[in-house]
Amino acid sequence: MISRAAREIAPGMVVNLGIGLPTKVVDHLAPDFPVCLHTENGLTGIGPTLPVEDADRNLIDAGGAYVSTIPGSAFFDSATSFSLVRSGRLDLTMLGAFEVAQNGDLANWKIPGKFSPGAGGGVELAQKAQRVVVLSTHTDRSGKPKLLADCTLPLTAKGCVDRIFTDMAVVDVTPQGFALREIAEGVSVDQVIAATDAELSLPDGEISVF
């Protein structure tokens, strides 16, 4: 799933990888792949993550991981960082999710009564990136579907998600709702349908496997 998601990144893009699963995507990009990674705490041109013994105490990503610079990196303040996001310069963001609705609504910041840490930069990433893809398990830890007809949790942004990569499938959000595009090796279409709590349109002909 992570390696499949990495193929979503096209040469030349400016990309923000959210905390959690999305940060692992970078491990699947070739060292000479031309892409500019952005982190909202004020860096473009993120270099490799460093072990603590090699870390610079002043150089982190938004998730607190110690990262590095590469030739061409830039530092800037938080207003500049989100100007980049809100003005349309961010081509792609990959985010985690608690729930995604068939109209593209995303909930990933609050579970009332249980978990309310604040949304950080997630609202602007979800609302303003040119393309928003979600990386998530298909169901939560208790087996409940995360792809739903309607979100039940407070939204991060409405109608923002374009594509979802899960451990079971690649699903697009279309004007007609969820559309199954690919399935993971060893997973059946029926299993994906059963693990999705919304209508799922199927491709004509044979479905490709990742």
Binding site: S81, R86, G121, V123, E124
Partner: peptide, 14 residues
């Protein structure tokens, strides 16, 4: 606690 979107906090301060 008042939560604010991160870039909007930056712009409110700016």
């Amino acid at each position: 606690v008042e939560f604010c979107a991160q870039g909007i906090l930056a712009e409110r301060v700016r």
